[in-house]
Design a protein around this nucleic acid. Structure first.
Lengths: 345, 345
DNA sequence: AAGTCCTTTGGGAGCGCTCCCAGACGTGAT
DNA sequence: ATCACGTCTGGGAGCGCTCCCAAAGGACTT
C-alpha cells in the first residue's frame, strides 16, 4: 500500500487520532476548543498534532460546518481612484491586523461595474463568506440591502445617511470639520469659507454641518456666499474657490472637505497672487500624502483609518459570532478625528 | 418533512440533476465544460441550472478536487508604507481585473512580522491556495524559496537579482531611468546627478545602471561625485541632495530613483535658493500622487502598475494551469515604463 | 447493591462535490 | 446476425471534516 493523497500528503484528522490513540471526535474537540475533554487526553492530542505538523483542511471544515472562515472586503472601483489612497490601504491594514489572530481569511473584491456587482451578489447569496465589509458605499448601492435581506453579516465604512440601518464604522466627520474651522477662527480668521463634497453624500453633509456649527458657536455670521459645493476632485476645488473668490474676495480662510480639493484651491490662490497662509489660511480633510507634500504643507483632519479598519473587523466578527450563538450583536462605532496642524493655517 | 439545509437552502448538484432528469456526473460534466455530453443533455442541464439558480459550492468542490480556486496576494507590511501608495493599489487593481473572468478568489495577506510570515508559510504548505503573488520581496526573504521547495506556483513583482529563478513581472527600471536621464540631457543639462535607492535592492541598481548608461551614450563624463545613495525616503532624499550640492554646487539636474526622495530634494533646493526647473531640473520615479502635487509638478517615470498586476495574475494562472496539465509553464515578463513630463524638467 | 446523573469518549452519518468505472446504446465492419 | 469500437451516461466511492448519538465509566445517592 502506498500512501495515497494526491499532493504533499498532509496528515488528516484521522491520522492524528490514530497517532494519539483516540477517536476522531476527540481530536476535533481539542482543535475546536470544546469542553468535555480531559486534560490528559487533550495534552496527548496536542502533542500528536505538533509532532505530525497537522493543519486542518479548510475546505473540509467549511463543507462540514457550513461556514467558510472568510470575510470579503468589497471596494467599489470608482472610489479607489477618487478617495485619496491612504483611505484604501489604511483600512485594509487595520482589517488585516485585527484578523491576524483569527483564522479568518480576507477576501478582496473590487467591483467595477454592475455585472461584477451581480456576480458578487450571487457569490454572497451562495454563502461563500461569513461576512462582508463594504468600503464607502454610495447611497444608491443595492448591496447593503441585499445583504440585509439574506441575513449576511455586514459592516459599512461610513454611513449612507443619518440613520444607517446596517452596522457601520465611521469617523466623526462633523466633529472633525468643526475642530478644523474652530482652529481657523482661533487663528483670527473671520471670513472662513468652505468647499463641500457632493451634498448627496452624507459625509459631505456632516462636514458642512461641522463647519456651520463652528461658526454658530463662535457667533460669526453664516454667509451662504462663503459656501461652495465641490465634488472631492482637484478640478472641483479649483472651480469652487474661483466661485468663492468672486463672491467674497475678502475671504481669509478656506476649509476644504478633502485634501485633493485643497490642492486645487492652493493652485488657484497662487494664480490669483494670494499667499498661504498669510492671506488665506487653508485646511483640508483626510491627511493624505497630498497634504504632507503641498507647499506649504496642508493642515488637515486625520481620520484614524487603521483603527477604523480594526473596528470594522471587530464589529463584523462580533456579528458573526453573535449570529452563531443565536444572538443579534449589531453595533456601530464612530471614531474621533484629529487635526494635524501644518504651515497652511 | 421540512427542507433541511441549515441556511438559505441553495440547490445542490444532486437537485439540479434530479430536476433535469439526469445523473450527478452529467451535471458535473456540463458545469466543468467536459466533452462527451450531447447537446441535448447539455441544454437541458443548463436550463435546470438557470431555473434553480444553482451555484456550485466552493468548499465541496475544493475538498473533492483538491484545489482551492484561490490565490494569495502577499504584501510585506513594511513596504506598504514606504513605496508610494499607487504601487500597492495599482497592482491590486490589475490582479483583480485579470481574475474577474476567472472564478479564482483573491486572498489578501499582509505580513508584518516573522510570526505572521511563519503562519502564512504553514498556511501555504497546507495547500490552502493554488498560487501566490508576492509583492516587492526583499532579497533576504525566505518565502520565495519556501514556495519553490513545496512546488507552489508563485510570481514576484520585481526581481531580487539579475537572475531571478522565480517567475516575476517587473518593469523596465533600467530603461525607464535611462529615458529619464536622456530627457534631462536633451533639455541641455550637463551636470546631471542621481540619487539612488538602497543599493542592495536590485531595483535601485537597475535605475542607477540606466542613469549611467544614458550618460555614457551621450558621451558625458561619469563623475562619481554626482551619485548619492538614498533610501527611498523623503529624509534620505534631503540628506543625499545636500551631499551632492556640497560636492558639485554646479549641478543642473537631479534624477531621483523615487518621487518621495524627489520631494525631499525639492524642499532642500528651495531652501538653498535654487529654482526648479530653471536652476535645477528634477525627475522622479513612480509617478505617484506626490509627483502630481509637487510645485512645480514633477516629471516622473511611470510604471504600468495595473498592467503589471494583470501580467502577474496571468503568469500565475498559466503556471497553475500548466502544473495541472503536467507541463512547466514558467515565464517572466518585463514591461515598459513611460516618462510623464511635467514642469519640473 | 441498584439506580441516577454527569463527564468523557468513539465513531456513524453526512456536507456537496469530483473522479472514474462500468454499463447502455449506436454505428459500421465482418 | 455477430462482433468490435466509440460515445454518452449513471452512480459508487471518497475528499477531511463537524455534528451528534449512544455507550462507557465514575461519583453519588437511595
Amino acid at each position: 500500500m502506498t500512501v495515497s493523497g494526491r499532493r504533499g500528503q498532509r496528515p488528516t484528522l484521522e491520522q492524528v487520532a490514530a497517532y494519539a490513540g483516540v477517536g476522531r471526535g476527540t481530536v476535533s474537540r481539542v482543535i475546536n476548543g470544546a469542553a468535555n475533554v480531559s486534560d490528559q487526553t487533550r495534552t496527548a492530542v496536542q502533542q500528536a498534532i505538533a509532532e505530525l505538523g497537522y493543519v486542518p483542511n479548510r475546505a473540509a471544515r467549511a463543507l462540514a460546518a457550513g461556514s467558510t472562515d472568510a470575510i470579503a472586503l468589497v471596494i467599489p472601483e470608482a472610489e479607489t481612484r477618487l478617495f485619496a489612497e491612504p483611505y484604501f490601504s489604511g483600512i485594509i491594514r487595520g482589517v488585516s491586523t485585527e484578523l491576524a489572530d483569527t483564522d479568518m481569511q480576507l477576501l478582496l473584491t473590487l467591483i467595477r461595474n454592475p455585472k461584477e456587482r451581480d456576480r458578487f451578489a450571487q457569490y454572497v447569496a451562495a454563502h461563500r463568506v461569513d461576512g462582508v465589509l463594504l468600503v464607502s458605499v454610495h447611497a444608491d448601492d443595492p448591496l447593503p440591502d441585499l445583504l440585509e435581506r439574506i441575513e449576511m453579516p455586514a459592516v459599512l465604512s461610513g454611513r449612507r445617511s443619518g440613520d444607517e440601518p446596517v452596522p457601520y464604522v465611521d469617523c466623526d466627520n462633523t466633529g472633525g470639520a468643526q475642530t478644523a474651522v474652530e482652529h481657523l477662527i482661533g487663528r483670527g480668521r473671520r471670513a472662513v469659507a468652505t468647499i463641500t463634497g457632493p451634498l448627496d453624500m452624507y459625509v459631505a453633509q456632516c462636514r458642512l454641518e461641522g463647519y456651520r456649527h463652528a461658526l454658530r458657536t463662535a457667533g460669526l455670521e453664516e454667509d451662504e456666499r462663503l459656501v461652495a459645493v465641490g465634488d472631492f476632485t482637484e478640478e472641483g476645488g479649483r472651480r469652487a474657490v474661483r466661485e468663492l473668490l468672486s463672491r467674497r474676495p475678502d475671504l481669509d480662510a478656506v476649509f476644504c472637505a478633502s485634501d485633493v480639493m485643497a490642492a486645487g484651491v492652493r493652485a488657484v490662490l497662487r494664480e490669483s497672487g494670494r499667499r498661504v497662509p498669510e492671506d488665506v489660511a487653508l485646511v483640508g480633510f483626510d491627511d493624505s500624502a497630498v497634504a504632507r507634500h503641498m507647499d506649504p504643507p496642508l493642515t488637515s483632519v486625520r481620520q484614524p483609518l487603521e483603527e477604523m479598519g480594526r473596528s470594522m473587523a471587530r464589529v463584523l466578527l462580533e456579528q458573526i459570532e453573535g449570529r452563531k450563538a443565536g444572538r443579534d450583536d449589531r453595533s456601530s462605532r464612530v471614531l474621533p478625528t484629529e487635526l494635524i496642524r501644518r504651515a497652511s493655517s
